[in-house]
Amino acid sequence: MHTPAPIGRTPAAADAPPAVVHLLGGTRRSIRLLGLIGMALACAPLVVRSEFHLTFMTLALYSTLLGSAWNILGGFGGQYSFGHAVFFGLGAYTGAILQVHAGLPAWTGLLAGSAIGGAAGAALGAISFRYGLRGSYFALVTLAMAEVFRIIANSVPFTGAGVGMMIELRSGPADLQFESRQGYYYFALALALVALAVSSWVRHSRFGAALAAVRDNEDAARALGIDATRIKVAATALSGSLMAAGGVFYLQYFHYIDPMLVFGPAVSVEALLGPIVGGLGTVLGPLIGAFALALVSQVATQALGQAPALSMALYGVILIVMVTFLPRGLGRLRLRRGRHA
């Protein structure tokens, strides 16, 4: 057995620098900080007038949602999923099917999608963790699950098979489609803030403490009477539910989905990259990571021209560089530097 590296260890641990405890720890401080960030982001459209910049921020917030969802299981729970697209796709297809085949308004899709994502998370967690899957094996099973769902969506008629599904254009808040960029911005912001609030709750609650204990030493946690399997299943459900909401947002924003877009590996990579760049197992890590990555990809697009493959390759390089040189993420780097300066 190797000892767990200090990635995502709870700030309450003895060796954590005090600056980290003050900024990322403390329930009340944390809520106040989140409130401030939320207010600043809510006011942003008053200052940011250009559509281009607002789109940039909208997509970064959407990415924050995916990253936070992944981070609950991967960061706080230490279970790396390589197939979070499975929840994303389930959310997106639930939304699309309810709108296209049942004629229901989009908000029902958001609720039902999140519920199905949560249920799928609970189911996946239950079968995986009941049989003691950990580490690489868990990553592989999630990946295979996403592939299975991609193939199913590609093969059955009610998902439109390989052609995909398109939702009707109907502007209005109840349909979760907006004529202005601002509308989508606030929709993304609302979802991202919910995800951050849930992360903050996980971070400071009894549940989160148990989850961190299981992550750091499962046997010890079990010895203390923690039902490790149940805790991990709950984290997967929570994570899956938020990820599915991300899928619904994608559907409402782009109006079109197909099996590769929503069950494909690109979504799973986007979900895990943000928290790894920003700081695994921290509340704000996914937010920091999402904005940093959005910035990098924007700069890359400007420097390299419209070459999506190259900017994706750059994401891969960033992943390797982060894991090699900054396994604790950007968020922690900044704070630690600040303490020493």
């Binding site: 580490g135 990579v269 891969g316 992943l319 090699t324």
Partner: peptide
Amino acid sequence: LLVTLGLSI
């Protein structure tokens, strides 16, 4: 796992 994932990307 993450580094080899990065490599494949």
